[in-house]
């Protein structure tokens, strides 16, 4: 899509906004609709849009595949690690009161924040990884063929 000037300019404007919105959904999920799953998808969409309009090489220079694959595992580990942490502190698995035993509800806030971050990281990683896997096999098709 080298010659679609409007598309390229608009994409450059939008990618940052989309990621910002994704982060808002991620960290404001406690107060408004949304959370890790939705935020992960939105952030992934930003990278996929960039990849579709520019090229796979360019998006992989920003967000290399090895990093994506690490993120997939990191998110799940963060989630499970949160549970292990409360285990270590002498609470039940995934009992977030462990983060702040004096104010259990504050502890819940921290726990939910961490867990949602884990969800978001894994979902972003998986979505981008699947897109890379598909796009890396795709032969470049000219616009007229559609």
């Amino acid at each position: 899509m080298r010659h679609h000037l409007i598309l390229r300019v608009v994409t450059k404007l939008l990618v940052g906004t989309i990621i910002l919105f994704g982060l808002y959904v991620q960290f404001h999920g406690d107060f408004s609709p949304g959370g890790g799953f939705q935020a992960g998808v939105i952030i992934a969409v930003a990278f996929i849009l960039y990849g579709v309009v520019f090229s796979l090489d360019q998006v992989q220079r920003v967000f290399p595949p090895w990093l994506v694959h690490k993120l997939v595992a990191l998110g799940l580990l963060l989630y499970a690690g949160t549970g292990l942490f409360s285990f270590m502190r002498g609470f039940r698995y995934l009992d977030y009161a462990a983060f702040d035993p004096h104010h259990p509800s504050h502890g819940q806030h921290y726990g939910i924040l961490l867990v949602e971050a884990g969800v978001g990281i894994t979902v972003t990683g998986v979505m981008v990884a699947i897109y890379y896997a598909f796009a890396a096999r795709t032969p470049v098709i000219s616009d007229e063929e559609w």
Binding site: D30, P33, G35, S105, G111, I112
Partner: peptide, 14 residues
């Protein structure tokens, strides 16, 4: 117990 306005998040994550 959780003190969050979005109950969906509270149920989902906690």
């Amino acid at each position: 117990e959780i003190d969050l306005p979005n109950m969906v998040t509270a149920v989902l994550a906690s």
